[in-house]
Design a protein around this nucleic acid. Structure first.
Ligand SMILES: [Zn+2]
Ligand SMILES: [Zn+2]
Ligand SMILES: [Zn+2]
Ligand SMILES: [Zn+2]
Ligand SMILES: [Zn+2]
Ligand SMILES: [Zn+2]
Ligand SMILES: [Zn+2]
Ligand SMILES: [Zn+2]
Ligand SMILES: [Zn+2]
Ligand SMILES: [Zn+2]
Ligand SMILES: [Zn+2]
Ligand SMILES: [Zn+2]
Ligand SMILES: [Zn+2]
Ligand SMILES: [Zn+2]
Ligand SMILES: [Zn+2]
Ligand SMILES: [Zn+2]
Lengths: 173, 173
DNA sequence: CTTTCTCTGTTTTGTC
DNA sequence: GGACAAAACAGAGAAA
DNA sequence: CTTTCTCTGTTTTGTC
DNA sequence: GGACAAAACAGAGAAA
């Protein structure tokens, strides 16, 4: 036999089970009992910009405004200037050169933002994801449909957007 | 109070817990005891091609070879001809116009391929994912490093590729 | 189908 | 040699 | 860090 | 009016 991983079965060996495939955005919030305890409305620091652009130490530098990236080959630079992500299997094309640089965090393991709620280990790459996540703790439903006779509320902007799209409520006139 | 979702706490109401965010490729295989039971090496049917390209009923038709797609606006057609996926938030650019059409399955909910293993509910969008998944059941490790004195085996081509890349084994001469 | 919720490319807002 | 489609590869990347 | 395993854009293979 | 960055939106889409 060829020693399959999950062979086992009858013996007492470490017969592995087929694992579930899961993709959770890191440490999901623990089941919270208390709500709206954390009243600490942390002041957002207004320091210098978020320092996103790292230089690479290549010979071919991008000369586009505000971009200080450089690459090892001319071809890489051309792709970069076309606002196409160079990561294999990605290849997304963007409208903005600035965003191309921000997009790189999608391919990095860092999740620098944390949920401020005590005991919650949730982390994020995007500030907006954190902003909306916090509402899960507070219970806030900040989106209110102003259409006459509707008055529905929503916790997430996406759900409010869908409501407007499907019902035609609150469309600008 | 504003009726937060997971308010509850002390009362007996349906106080919801914060849910985990999970992304599993559908019905993961049940813990399998038996191994290599399914000897049924299903013959692959060689019928007509996989019939991927669906026409849309737009006015602007793509005239590229073998492509029968059409669109509602000229701008959509231009994007299509540039091999860029039109799905919002995707925007990937591809080398091949043929693949652009196949890529659309990424955005569809259908998972037309199934694991042939009895009792396994795993489904797939891509044939290769199915092919490699089956080895989890059979225990097969079909990749063997031929470098002198190495002889390591691998179940997944990706792991074999990495082995070659990191060790320099089996590099073509 | 539904609701809940996260991710992210683009749009809008706010400040200088 | 050329289509053309199916198979396979080679990463990326999630989870444990 | 590791191993296991799935997803998918591109490359290779096989058939006509 | 113009930068420019932060915030917000508007989908896509996963999970239950
Ligand atoms: Zn640049
Ligand atoms: Zn990318
Ligand atoms: Zn939290
Ligand atoms: Zn409404
Ligand atoms: Zn076409
Ligand atoms: Zn796409
Ligand atoms: Zn299976
Ligand atoms: Zn080797
Ligand atoms: Zn704003
Ligand atoms: Zn030939
Ligand atoms: Zn990896
Ligand atoms: Zn990782
Ligand atoms: Zn082949
Ligand atoms: Zn002004
Ligand atoms: Zn959706
Ligand atoms: Zn879905």
């Amino acid at each position: 036999m060829d020693s399959g991983e999950e062979s086992g079965g009858d013996d007492g060996g470490p017969s592995r089970r087929l694992r579930k495939r899961i993709m959770k955005p890191p440490p999901s919030p623990e089941p919270e009992k208390e709500m709206k305890k954390n009243s600490g409305t942390k002041k957002v620091k207004k320091g210098q910009p978020m320092m996103e652009a790292r230089e690479e130490d290549g010979e071919f530098a991008c000369d586009m405004e505000g971009c200080n990236m450089s690459f090892d080959s001319k071809q890489e630079l051309i792709v970069h200037k076309r606002n196409v992500c160079p990561v294999k299997g990605c290849g997304k094309k963007f409208f903005s050169h600035k965003y191309l640089v921000q997009h790189r965090r999608v391919h990095m393991d860092d999740r620098p933002l944390q949920c401020p709620w005590k005991g919650c280990k949730m982390t994020f790459k995007w500030a907006w994801a954190r902003t909306e996540h916090i509402r899960v703790h507070t219970g806030a439903r900040p989106y209110v449909c102003t259409e006459d006779g509707c008055g529905q509320t929503f916790r997430f902007v996406s759900d409010f957007s869908r409501h407007k799209r499907k019902t035609g409520h609150s469309v600008k006139k």
